[in-house]
């Protein structure tokens, strides 16, 4: 084990974890104090044992403080509707609810705009009404559960955590926040290539076939593609910017996670629009105005078009499901606050 072990990072990570459950008003100050106290305990333990400070001693100190959540709980007093005992359960349920609410807003907006009945004030009023009702029901339900369930039942997960918690897990968390540059580089190259292709070479999407001994090619992106093109490219560029910024920062923080949430919402909106909008594949009249493919070639390509559109629709649905799942996960990560902690005295 190295004697140059960076226990400060580990202690900061502990303070970050504890910070999620600390009162917001004094969070930074308490976190700073926790780190200071951990350092005192470390120094004392090292002197008592006569050993140099290393990872084992640092972890032993953390073990003596206990899991961050139970340590942070001691800074709370009974002044809340949903307390720290039940809050860890309340939070993911709330995030899931908010995620579903967000999807409902996107789908609702899409349907309202499609059916032509869009009224800004009514729409905002409805969404606020739904949002507050959901929030109210959740808070009420959890406050009721907290006040009617025996504490030993509610505390069961904490007891289990105290039994099984391993401070070494914080080391894994520290490495998880780092960005995988190789993945980002791969995605950046792909995005640049895709943008260039969509902007300059979309006419290469099509069907090439040999009819009567002659090779022919007919593009299959319809004139409708031009409606979507700008937005698809905008989405890809946003992803590109996101990846570049992330690579420059080299770690995840809450800003980057919110950035990602924004991109996901954009993707979901785009996918919904393409799913409900005009079909992407068809014979472009602009192509026919310039080229003169043989009738048999044209008939053959037209015969494949329903397959193109069906396949694309299935792809859109699969992508929608994936994006929604990722959006819920991202929202969960945002609120879990995996961010770096900058401790300093004012």
């Amino acid at each position: 084990m190295s004697t140059e072990f960076d226990y400060k990072e580990l202690f900061n990570q502990y303070a970050v974890e504890a910070g999620r459950y600390l009162p917001r008003r004094k969070r930074k100050d308490i976190q700073l104090e926790i780190v200071s106290l951990l350092e005192d305990a470390l120094e004392d333990m090292s002197q008592t044992s006569g050993e140099q400070v290393d990872e084992d001693i640092a972890i032993e100190v953390l073990r003596s403080f206990g899991p961050p959540i139970t340590y942070a709980e001691k800074y709370h007093q009974q002044e809340y509707l949903v307390g720290p005992v039940i809050f860890p359960l309340f939070k993911p349920v709330l995030i899931l609810g908010l995620g579903l609410f967000l999807i409902q807003i996107v789908v609702g907006l899409f349907l309202i705009i499609r059916d032509g009945g869009f009224n800004f004030l009514d729409t905002v009023d409805n969404f606020f009404d739904m949002g507050f009702r959901m929030l109210g029901v959740l808070v009420f339900a959890f406050a009721l559960i907290e006040r009617t369930t025996p504490e030993r039942w509610l505390r069961w997960p904490f007891r289990e955590m105290e039994r099984t918690w391993d401070p070494a897990g914080l080391l894994v968390n520290m490495s998880k926040q780092a960005v995988k540059l190789r993945d980002i580089l791969f995605e950046v190259v792909f995005l640049v290539g895709f943008v260039v292709f969509l902007v300059f070479f979309p006419h290469y999407v099509g069907v090439g076939v040999n009819r009567d001994g002659v090779w022919g090619f007919v593009p299959t992106l319809s004139e409708n593609f031009e409606i979507y093109q700008l937005w698809i490219v905008a989405y890809l560029l946003a992803k590109l910017v996101f990846n570049i910024v992330l690579a420059r920062r080299s770690y995840w923080d809450s800003q980057m996670r919110w950035f990602q949430v924004g991109i996901r919402v954009l993707a979901i909106g785009l996918l919904l629009w393409m799913k409900g909008g005009p079909e992407m594949f068809g014979i472009n009249p602009a192509y026919l105005a310039v080229h003169n493919p043989s009738a048999s070639l044209l008939d053959f390509v037209k015969g494949t078009l329903p397959g193109w559109n069906t396949g694309f629709n299935i792809y859109l649905i699969i992508q929608l499901v994936i994006q929604v799942i990722h959006l819920v996960r991202d929202l969960f990560m945002v609120t879990r606050g995996k961010s770096e902690l900058k401790l300093h005295l004012k």
């Binding site: 104090e33 139970t70 001691k74 800074y75």
Partner: peptide, 11 residues
């Protein structure tokens, strides 16, 4: 216990 003392000092 340290978990008792430190929050108490703040209170």
């Amino acid at each position: 216990d340290q978990g008792t003392l430190y929050p108490l000092l703040r209170r």
